[in-house]
Each structure stands twice: as C-alpha cells, then as structure tokens.
C-alpha cells in the first residue's frame, strides 16, 4: 500500500481513538464496569460506519489504494476463537488497554504503557511459537 496513505489512515485512526477516550485506561475500565456508557457510542458509531460503508466499498472491483481486497473467509466458530477472545477480554478488563489504543497511547510516554505493549508482543510471539 502507498506509504503516505498508510500513514494518513493510521493518523486518522489514532486521532479517533484518542478523541473517543479509548487510549485512557480509566475510561475503558469505567465502560467495562458499566459506569460510563460513552464508549458504547464510540464502538456503535464506528460499527455503524463499517456496516453502512463496507457493502458500498466491496461493490468495487478493487480498493482505491491496493490492487485487491484481503478479507477473512472463515465463518465457523471454533474453540480457538472463543478461548482466544476470552483471554483477550480478561487482559483488556484487567488494565483497560487493547492493542490499537495501547500502541497509540505509547505516544504519551507512560512507561507502564510501554511495559504493556512489550508484554503484548511477547504474548503474540508466544502464540506464534506454539503454532
């Protein structure tokens, strides 16, 4: 993909996450504790855009900035998916950070966020080694 486009899209995504409060663990924890429903609007708003936008985009023969679409094809719900999602949720709820916002929050310079991201990559590597 065009590097400039990738950088701009990343910037837009990070701005959205930051503005919505996803990069602040306290806000995310408030949401998961059912104290602050605002992030439901974030998720709902973002999903509304993809729900309405994706069908239109996919009517194209190919994306504007790539030579083809890369889309997941599986639709079976297996054990690995459910166990993975469950573990992911536990980690997310323990500190209030998930991958995209954690990478974005690195820019804030908090060493704890750096530690989280390092552990996150270690977790990914662990999965890669186990196959």
């Amino acid at each position: 993909m065009n590097l400039v486009v990738a950088a701009l899209v990343g910037l837009l995504f990070a701005l959205g996450l930051g503005l919505a409060g996803m990069t602040q663990p306290a806000r995310v924890l408030g949401f998961l504790e059912f104290r602050d429903p605002a992030l439901l609007l974030t998720m709902g708003g973002a999903t509304a855009v993809t729900l309405l936008g994706f069908p239109r985009v996919l009517r194209r023969e190919r994306p504007v900035f790539a030579w083809r679409f890369w889309l997941p094809t599986r639709s079976d719900i297996d054990r690995k998916l459910l166990v993975g999602a469950a573990l992911f949720g536990l980690g997310w709820g323990l500190v209030g950070l998930c991958p995209g916002p954690a990478l974005t929050a690195l820019a804030g310079g908090d060493p704890l966020v750096g530690l989280f991201v390092a552990a996150m990559f270690a977790g990914m590597a662990l999965h890669a080694r186990r196959g």
Binding site: V83, F88, G89, L90, L94, V95, M120, F121, G123, M124
Partner: peptide
Amino acid sequence: AAGLLVGYGARAG
C-alpha cells in the same frame, strides 16, 4: 499479565 493475555488472545482469537 494483562499484556500477555491481550497479545496471545488477539492472535488466538
């Protein structure tokens, strides 16, 4: 611990 869970879980899931 949370980082490990998030990283591993995101890949497995």
